[in-house]
């Protein structure tokens, strides 16, 4: 594995008034890694991710994304990342092809490259018959796979996925992860938040957030050894037991 660090945070903190959503989080993510960001609802995962994407300004601390500073170089960061939000993030009243063209277009992909890209994307996803269909008419699993593929259309260095598999059945979830592995093999770093513990085991490394702080950071295997448990579920319960914040 390469040792290029693509995400580096140092004591990154976000306060909303008295409430500290994320408290001094520090971690590194290496290029091509699938980095899982775990935690209960309200633990601060989404806030942390929003800061890294430039959607939210940190209260204190430092971070660089793909080598760019998150305070001063947000424009360069935007060109190097992809993002898939917690809510489904394609236009339901546009067709598959129109969505691909629109999102590819706003990332400045040329017509030629866009048509090559969309051909291979539709090929990979096996969506040839569906390309003129409105996205709203597709099953949720298809939409998620399409949304992910669209978010890496411009070959970003890093892609941020905010609970991408919410509400999807296990089989489709597995297929979705196959797509993630394929992208990681191409060198795209994947930063993914989830609260499905089986998914945590698919990650190269995971962090566990509790009450806005990082309580653990290692490979799933080592974490299971450390807490001498058989599954990530148990690790999670062990760590989250001390949580003061109630999940909402």
């Amino acid at each position: 594995m390469e040792t290029d660090i693509v995400i580096k945070t140092e004591k990154l903190t976000k306060r909303f008034g008295d409430f500290i959503a994320t408290n001094q989080i520090t971690f590194d993510v290496q290029a091509g890694e699938i980095f899982g960001f775990l935690g209960a609802n309200g633990a601060g995962k989404t806030t942390a991710m929003k800061m890294l994407c430039g959607l939210s300004t940190p209260t204190s601390g430092n971070a660089t994304i793909a080598g760019f500073d998150i305070y001063r170089e947000t424009e360069q960061i935007k060109k190097n990342i992809g993002y898939m939000s917690q809510k489904f993030s394609l236009y339901e009243d546009l067709t598959v092809l129109e969505n691909i063209n629109f999102f590819g277009g706003i990332y400045g992909l040329s017509k030629k490259r866009l048509s090559e890209k969309s051909e291979s994307l539709i090929e990979t996803l096996n969506m040839k018959e569906l390309r003129k269909k409105l996205v709203g008419s597709l099953p949720l699993g298809w939409k998620q796979k399409l949304a992910f593929s669209v978010s890496i259309l411009h070959e970003p260095k890093i892609v941020f996925l905010d609970e991408p598999t919410g509400g999807v059945d296990p089989v489709t979830r597995r297929q979705f992860w196959d797509l993630l592995y394929a992208a990681a093999d191409r060198g795209i770093t994947i930063f993914v938040t989830t609260h499905y513990m089986d998914e945590a085991e698919y990650c190269n490394r995971i962090t566990m957030m509790v009450d806005g702080e990082i309580k653990a950071l290692d490979t799933p295997k080592k974490l299971m050894q450390q807490y001498s448990s058989d599954s990530m579920d148990e690790v999670f319960y062990e760590l989250a037991r001390g949580a003061k914040r109630k999940a909402d």
Binding site: C53, G54, L55, E75, K78, K79, I81, Y83, M84, S85, Q86, K87, F88, S89, L90, Y91, E92, F103, I106, Y107, G108, S151, F160
Partner: peptide, 14 residues
Amino acid sequence: KESGTMEVLLVSPF
């Protein structure tokens, strides 16, 4: 905003 596409647009270089 409701559909989440606004976030995606704001994360893009647009």
